[in-house]
Design a protein around this nucleic acid. Structure first.
Lengths: 351, 351
DNA sequence: TCAACCTGAGAGAGCGCTCTCTCATCCTGA
DNA sequence: TCAGGATGAGAGAGCGCTCTCTCAGGTTGA
């Protein structure tokens, strides 16, 4: 009685038979072609409804050579990446922009080497029109190269390690962010300025440190650099090491807000007041930065925007037919090989 | 010179021509059929390598009526779900088990109504062989029903709200977990036992409260129930309300570890010692539970196992041909409509 | 009145693959 | 020596769709 059990889904052909028209006409209706008579259209629509017809995407993809699907590949052994505000921002931006363009986003996790291979097969097999790649660590990640070799359009989130790769990417202006942080600490009169830098194998960390170093100029002291893992606890540990090295430090630039929060906790434990004794600048402007105590002065990066820009950059190269309306805030991407999104200093109370 | 630019990927046909065999033979080699001569096999393998051949998954899916892809649909408006240890456990389990079965997992986010529709189209269009659904809140979620109506195999993570749905699901034994927590608090001699329950619209929260209530029996006091959102800060707030209602409470069962951590923070702020003045039992056994201060007594649920079981349950119904070796810890799923995974009490110091 | 044009619908090829049939070839044993 | 099996490879249909080409029927202008 119920139409619930429908083991073999109806095809275009069956709809056509029921509506008494040709397959071509059904196809036109389903795809919204304007060259179809209203009466005929409604006959077809009825048949579609009655049968619960849903086009078979494999068949469509086969002939169109397009799937209207974007793969967001997260190449990162640790699932906890998802907890990272960076990732959730990117994901939010990517899904928003893709939705607007009528594209489906599928997220693929590449955690093991076996996954890596599976993901590569998936992407190369035409199951997606393009790949957005997020892999912060890397250096070793074979995915960008193999995707490129396969002629699959790729956009990377963040600056890729391998400079030789001629690949599209969207990054935040981490170097400038590092400069802004250093400049702020100098401007408020600090002199012994340390940094809890990011991991050495992540370009974001490298670039932030580079900006910090260059702005500090002669005041830069290599022994006042400790590396963390962008996590709160690693920020605490690094800060303890810094305090051991330089008990007189009066400022810390942490390359992520989580590390800045860790730094504040460690400083407090060591009896230092923030910002009175030690000023702290973070990076990211995560949600909790504003409500931290004290509210965190930080460098804001726009991860949601970054995700959106990644999609736009990809579409600009693969789908010039889609005329995306220009979004303010996102620099136009025609003919660019990469985009550098602006960052800004958000001054609160910690520095 | 470089083979990098390969805009139109080679087809079986081209491989066949190069190898001097028929399409059928190439197909056999690619799919590992045993009935192919070694010499021929290596000729084909060479051709595959030379051309960089990769089978077109759309074409294959079209004829096989199978994609070897599982969709993990996360139906949740807030992207922050990803930070939730529950989700990352499920994801880890799902990807692990799917990998073992040679299946690709794609994660789909359904955040808005538009997404919902897109996801539904995707799933119903044959782009995946089955759907694993995670949507904790819900009640309103149309996805389970529409998938079911479309004849798409679905397994839900957690007990679905809609009892009338004849649908497969894998849940943790939340009721028993609630009982275990209550029993522990009674066993250590506590008498004024409060609970920070989960949200009213999530079955996990409802079930944990139900177990707690039933085990407490006559000692259950409705006014000692405050609801949180499974987050740390909501646990703090709820605990403050509880302390206002019953300053003499000597035990709290928090329906998640994050809320338990929040409870401990609030208790400490209120000058209560844990466990001396107030014993606290959590739920989840998240990674940080063991290293909390004091280490958290909690009810362990096995989310990774849950993810694995979801895949197995789906495969048991859709792919009886795959003989999965039985995994200990996962109850066999033949003929079952749902699985209830055991939970256990982990006694540490907080209770 | 009829050629020239437009509009809307059908015919049919073919996307890249799998898989059933069919058949050629080689081996075995009476 | 030759029927009866194996074995391994090719032929060909067809999965469900799109899209070009063709054409019928109606409209227009000279």
């Amino acid at each position: 009685m119920s139409p619930s059990i429908r083991p073999n889904r109806p095809s275009l052909e069956e709809v056509a038979v029921l509506a008494g028209v040709s397959r071509a006409t059904v196809s036109r209706v389903v795809n919204g072609s304007p060259t179809v008579d209203a009466a005929m259209r409604s006959r077809v629509d009825d048949a579609v409804r009655v049968l619960g017809y849903q086009p078979n995407l494999s068949a469509r993809a086969l002939v169109r050579r397009r799937t209207d699907t974007l793969a967001l590949v997260v190449s990162e052994p640790d699932v906890r990446v998802f907890g990272d505000p960076f990732f959730s921002g990117i994901i939010r931006g990517v899904t928003a922009e893709a939705s607007a363009a009528g594209l489906q986003v599928v997220i693929l996790l590449a955690q093991s080497d076996a996954d890596l291979e599976r993901v590569e097969r998936y992407a190369r097999s035409g199951a997606a029109d393009g790949v957005l790649l997020i892999s912060e660590h890397a250096g070793l990640d074979p995915l960008p190269r193999s995707m490129l070799d396969a002629g699959m359009p790729v956009v990377i989130g963040g600056r890729p390690h391998d400079e030789s790769l001629d690949i599209l990417f969207v990054d935040n202006d981490n170097v400038h962010g590092g400069r802004l942080a250093a400049r702020r600490l100098l401007d408020i009169g600090r002199s012994t300025i340390a940094t809890v830098a990011g991991p050495r194998d992540m370009t974001a960390g490298i670039d932030r440190l580079e900006g910090f170093r260059s702005e500090l100029g002669g005041r830069y002291r290599p022994e006042l650099v400790e590396h963390g893992e962008f996590t709160q606890s690693s920020g605490e540990d690094a800060t303890e090491r810094l305090l051991a090295t330089a008990p007189d430090l009066d400022a810390i630039f942490a390359a992520s807000d989580l590390m800045a929060l860790g730094a504040i906790a460690a400083l407090r434990r060591a009896g230092r007041r923030v910002p009175h004794d030690v000023a702290v600048v973070g990076f990211d402007d995560i949600e909790t930065a504003a409500s931290a105590s004290p509210p965190l002065t930080t460098v804001r990066q726009q991860t949601v925007l970054q995700g959106r820009a990644m999609v736009r950059l990809l579409l600009a190269t693969t789908r010039p037919d889609l005329r995306l309306e220009p979004a303010d805030a996102i620099p136009p991407s025609e003919g660019r090989s990469h985009l550098l999104l602006p960052v800004e200093l958000v001054v609160r109370e910690s520095a």
